[in-house]
Simulated scan of single mutants.
Amino acid sequence: MRKLLPLLTVLILTGLTPVQAEEAKPFADAKEIDLVTILPPPPANDSAQTKAELGEVLTLQVTRTPEMVANAQADAVEDVWRFANVMGPEFNKDRLPKFSAFFDRVVATEGAVVDPAKDVFKRPRPHQLSDLVKPAVKISNSGAWPSGHTTVGTLMGIVLSNMVPEKKAEIMARAWDYGNNRIVGGIHYRSDVEMGRIAGSVIAATIMRHDDFKAEFAEARTELRHSLGLPDLAH
Rank of each mutant, 00 (worst) to 15 (best):
L16G: 03
I171A: 02
H210S: 08
T59L: 12
L54H: 07
L60E: 08
F27K: 01
T50R: 09
P116A: 10
V202Y: 01
A44V: 08
R123D: 10
R221C: 09
V113Y: 03
S142T: 15
P135T: 05
I207V: 08
K93D: 08
S130H: 10
P231C: 05
G88Y: 11
Q73A: 14
V193E: 04
Q73M: 09
R82I: 05
A70K: 15
N71H: 12
R174G: 01
S140E: 14
K167Q: 14
V86N: 01
F121V: 04
V202D: 05
Q128M: 15
G153D: 02
P18A: 07
I38A: 08
V152S: 02
E78H: 11
V80Y: 05
I139Q: 08
L54Q: 15
K214P: 05
I38H: 08
L54V: 07
R182Y: 09
D46Q: 10
A117P: 11
D29P: 06
T9I: 06
D192P: 07
P42S: 07
A173T: 09
V137K: 05
L54D: 09
V120R: 12
F121L: 03
A218E: 12
T154H: 00
K214Q: 13
S161V: 00
N92Y: 12
K31Q: 15
I198H: 01
V164Y: 03
T50D: 05
T154L: 00
K31C: 02
L58K: 11
V10W: 08
R182P: 07
L155P: 00
Q20D: 13
E110P: 01
A108F: 10
L54F: 10
